[in-house]
């Protein structure tokens, strides 16, 4: 039996880096590129969490668009011509990373995530050899009040994976963002110590999805924090079957 036309997703054709690709309507550039093995760097994006467009590392050039567009937050359209890698994008991606490094205190050598950090990895992948802007060295909080986990805001890049996983997957919404611009910070409950949070279920999902050493398990020393994310595709698949 032929399904009614309205439920059939519209198939679109576009080019990414000169390669013709097919996509379903409603997909993002990031998703389509991934399906076609065209890597686009990202920090806030994580498969299984809703798209946010916070880190701007996935910016791409779209022919006809006056500005660069975040691939994770831009839907594909018919005939779109996307470039994912060129000198201009490389320059902006390095700039994004340099600003992330400059606005907090990322000391890779003594971090629990040294060698496994996504920020550190992207700096290497994008060839960021030093930070051109002056470091701010801001005074940041370290919240070790939780019995199992620590939040070190020196290492936070405000990707909000913790906020999204806690709200959308765990359903607790312990994490949220407080403040604006450079003064933004992720907080637990109403900016109370994590250990006193009444909404936190102690599941640790936030810790496991955190791309840096900002959230980590208590007792882990330099380079010891391995993030385990197998639960994310598992829970998403289970949810899909239940819908």
């Amino acid at each position: 039996m032929t399904p009614p036309l309205a439920t059939v997703p519209l198939i679109l054709t576009l080019t990414i880096d000169g390669q013709e690709v097919g996509a379903r309507e409603g997909q993002t550039i990031f998703e389509v590129a991934k399906e076609n093995n065209i890597p686009i760097p990202a920090l806030c994006n994580l498969e299984g969490l809703p798209n946010l467009g916070a880190c701007r590392l996935c910016v791409v050039e779209v022919k006809g668009a006056r500005r660069l567009l975040p691939a994770c937050a831009t839907n594909v359209s018919e005939g779109m011509e996307v470039s994912t890698t060129n000198e201009k994008l490389q320059k902006y991606r390095k700039m994004v990373l340099e600003l992330l490094f400059a606005e907090r205190n990322h000391t890779c050598s003594v971090c629990v995530s040294n060698g496994r950090c996504e920020l550190q990895g992207q700096a290497q992948a994008q060839g960021m050899d030093h930070v051109h802007v002056p470091y701010l060295f801001p005074k940041q909080l370290v919240d070790a009040s939780h019995p199992k986990f620590v939040a070190d805001h020196n290492r936070c890049i405000l990707c909000q994976r913790c906020v999204r996983v806690c709200d959308e997957i765990e359903g607790a919404h312990t994490w949220d963002v407080m403040g604006r611009g450079i003064n933004s910070k992720v907080i637990t409950d109403m900016f109370e110590p994590w250990g006193l949070s009444e909404s936190c279920t102690h599941c640790g999902k936030c810790v496991q999805v955190c791309p840096t050493g900002a959230l980590f398990e208590k007792g882990k020393s330099v380079a010891e924090m391995v993030k385990k994310r197998q639960f994310l595709p598992y829970l998403n698949t289970m949810r899909k079957y239940h819908e």
Binding site: N105, T107, S109, V110, H130, V131, Y135, F137
Partner: peptide, 18 residues
């Protein structure tokens, strides 16, 4: 040549800066 993380980023040496 900036030789090593302290020369390039401040690194551990700069942890006193706050």
């Amino acid at each position: 040549i900036a030789f090593g993380d302290c020369a390039v980023t401040g690194n551990v040496t700069a942890m006193r800066n706050t």
